[in-house]
């Protein structure tokens, strides 16, 4: 398929968008901010005959809190996310990750739904969503709405449980507790505009811990052993923090690529956790 042969349709409503997907199935793809889509198209991939533009659909723009859930629409851009007062209060971890995505330009166009749709293990919003135990909302004309825990959403790099007729509509999660300690960390090859070599989302409350790593496995991974230790530890001294951080070594499965070796990535999972814990615990 040539670039010049691809069509972009611009439905005015969610229902209409879902109709396009239902009718065209694998021949149609959602198009949000295009920051991944255009890159892939230029590389000769993702040459979909029909692109269904969803960036401006009103149904995908929500950012609200009700009934114990914070809900963020799939077409919300990083820019909106990181400037949102609601996010600053209920999900500062996610907002911090959004602030580290690409550049201002990428943040202006790139969306949360697109980050999930691309399903890169280095997607920066995904570790926070794992740590928040978020659910991904999927919607189709035939099947209506379903909510999938984010941990079951990904099948592997670039693969998810989304069916071709479904759109990601939103993610939802319980808000972070007001006094909770949290940390987002990203290790890239430079300070800005870098794809993660390793990333970490960390949440800590007495008796509660969530640790999720990005870019060190086929999908984002939760470090459950570290979580167990962290939630059971009575006091944190440097030695305890170090030994818990070292545990991360056993919980990740990175590969070597052009950015870093597997061995370094594995060590850096520990390093980020140690650095993060020391900062939030001030040890």
């Amino acid at each position: 398929m040539l670039l010049s042969e691809m069509k972009v349709v611009a439905p005015g409503s969610l229902t209409e968008a879902l109709r396009w997907l239902e009718e065209h199935q694998d021949r149609a793809r959602p198009l949000a901010g295009a920051t991944d889509a255009m890159v892939r198209v230029k590389e000769g991939q993702w040459r979909s005959p029909i692109w269904v533009e969803i960036r401006r659909l009103p149904e995908l723009q929500r950012m609200d809190q009700a009934d114990g859930w914070v809900t963020v629409g799939a077409a919300v851009t990083y820019g909106r996310l990181l400037r949102s007062e609601l996010m600053a209060q209920t999900a500062p971890l996610l907002a911090a990750a959004a602030r580290d995505v690409g550049s201002v330009q990428i943040q202006a166009m790139g969306t949360l739904g697109g980050n999930l749709g691309t399903a890169s293990p280095a997607g920066d919003t995904i570790p926070p969503l794992f740590a928040l135990e978020a659910e991904v909302g999927l919607c189709s004309r035939g099947g209506g709405e379903r909510w999938v825990p984010v941990e079951s959403f990904f099948l592997g790099p670039g693969r998810t449980v989304r069916r071709p007729d479904e759109l990601i509509t939103a993610v939802r999660f319980a808000p972070q507790a007001p006094g909770e300690r949290w940390k987002w960390q990203k290790l890239g090859l430079r300070g800005a505009q870098a794809i993660s070599m390793v990333s970490l989302a960390l949440r800590l409350q007495p008796g509660f811990a969530r640790v999720a790593f990005g870019a060190v496995g086929p999908t984002v991974l939760r470090a459950r052993k570290c979580e167990a230790w962290l939630s059971q530890a009575e006091a944190f001294d440097l030695a305890t923090v170090r030994s818990i951080a070292q545990m991360a070594w056993k919980e990740v499965a990175p590969i070597s690529d052009v950015r870093a070796s597997a061995a370094y990535r594995q060590q850096m999972a520990c390093a980020l956790l140690e650095r993060g814990l020391r900062e939030v615990l001030a040890v």
Partner: peptide, 27 residues
């Protein structure tokens, strides 16, 4: 600190500015 065009077997592993790391305003 950061720039290198990586090659392997005569093929470029660094193919564009996505993996060729230039300093930015932050560096």
């Amino acid at each position: 600190l950061c720039e290198d065009t990586l090659m392997e077997g005569g093929l470029h592993r660094t193919r564009n500015l996505t993996t060729y790391i230039l300093p930015t305003t932050c560096e």
